[in-house]
Design a binder for these strands. Sequence first.
DNA 1: GCACTCACTTAGAATTGATCAG
DNA 2: CTGATCAATTCTAAGTGAGTGC
Length: 573
Amino acid sequence: MPNASFTKRFCRGALRWEEERYPEGIKWKFLEHKGPVFAPPYEPLPENVKFYYDGKVMKLSTKAEEVATFFAKMLDHEYTTKEIFRKNFFKDWRKEMTSEEKSTITSLSKCDFTHMSQYFKAQTEARKQMSKEEKQKIKEENERLLKEYGYCVMDNHKERIANFKIEPPGLFRGRGNHPKMGMLKRRIMPEDIIINCSKDSKVPPPPPGHKWKEVRHDNKVTWLVSWTENIQGSIKYIMLNPSSRIKGEKDWQKYETARRLKKCVDKIRNQYREDWKSKEMKVRQRAVALYFIDKLALRAGNEKEEGETADTVGCCSLRVEHIKLHPELDGQEYVVEFDFLGKDSIRYYNKVPVEKRVFKNLQLFMENKQPEDDLFDRLNTSILNKHLQDLMEGLTAKVFRTYNASITLQQQLKELTNPDDNIPAKILSYNRANRAVAILCNHQRAPPKTFEKSMMNLQSKIDAKKEQLADARRELKSAKADAKVRRDEKAVESKKKAVQRIEEQLMKLEVQATDREENKQIALSTSKLNYLDPRISVAWCKKWGIPIEKIYNKTQREKFAWAIDMAEEDYEF
DNA sequence: GCACTCACTTAGAATTGATCAG
DNA sequence: CTGATCAATTCTAAGTGAGTGC
């Protein structure tokens, strides 16, 4: 545990501690690291692995071959059948070809990557079949790499780095309907890399024969390494692990801001309800948008450059086509039906009864507009956040998500925890509370491919256990009967215990089945990691005598070390 | 106001590793 | 011991929001 002392100081010092040590935006005083680990160089295919064009064997130049292997490795994926993907890939691939290749290879549909694909599958298989010793050797090599490059020194602490390996080249896979899917993500070279470290540290040397793009000493940022990526032109960073002081402190601050919102949220809610009546259109739009952000935990919804990314929206960027108004629906009045793609192209679908004023305002906002027009045409995230800043220092749209997620967990835990339950049942309650939050935040996942099968397996286990229980009960009965005749109480006791044990096992399985079924399309981890004040969970564990390991795995315990140290059983969010 | 850059958090999928039943 | 299964970890895309300069 490289960080034990941080946690202690961090807890006692609270915010003051940070301010004392780091005036205005200074993030560290000393930073030393070994630089990034680059992707392994391309290894050309063995001679016997062939690429075919138009039915004929064709030997590709190394550069063209490398890009071809990226496609071959994805051949089984649905991606490679999509027109945009193929078009983007082919265009970028041709840029890597020699002029002869370019003149020969003119159509992707005439390219046959199946042999290459088979080769890679065989490679994967071979890796699985490797002997223990070979696997051990790879493991040791990885550990060596981690030991050498996976840590840095920030101020007086050795800290784990999150992503010290540079992203290898490959084909870009956006989420959803991304216009750039299939484009070539180029190989990052030392000449692309900016190193950030302190002046008095040992600057990491670039690989032999290479130079860094730049070495800078900027202690107002937290990153160690950066480079510009070629698909969107955005900057990528190497930063510290969530267990680090700098990340933990920020995380803690985030929840403290959300707790400050708790204190003034009633006032803010009254305010926006008043604003629904404002004479100013901008104010009304702002107030309705804020209502959605608060009630439905929608994201802010920054503008995006059209055609550069998938068409997704958040609250401020909702368009008329994303909502339907139902004056009455299924016996409820003033229902708004939301249907849009949010972050990561995850669909948000919800039918929500709203207050009459909200409904009337929405009708007004939609008047004389086309489906593709902005719903809140007088509003954007910057206007909204400026307003929020006036309501509370440090308040932004995303704080509502954090606040509502955490307060929901706390309420749900109070409501769902049954003091008489055993530990597995209590954990089911915890997961249900967590699930309520995940549903609120719309954290979905694709149902696991093997979901049905795994449910069936579990069910047959339950059936077997039930039979076992019936048997055990029969045995107990006959033991009781025997005992009457022969006064053998010992046998009865042991049978009783057996029945109890099996009952417990059965109940555990049934709880597991319920949990899994309810979790089919819901991802708990995102809310657990990013939205739920960990002190709520720590306090709950302490209160009910649940070992923290049942709630947080090792990585999560490292990330939340500050909270585990800090929170007592009576902690209130 | 607006376009653009930068730094940082949040996100689901893919891959890897640990565990368990047969 | 071995393969199936599930949990953990890794990966990197996709958001938020502040700041800058016109």
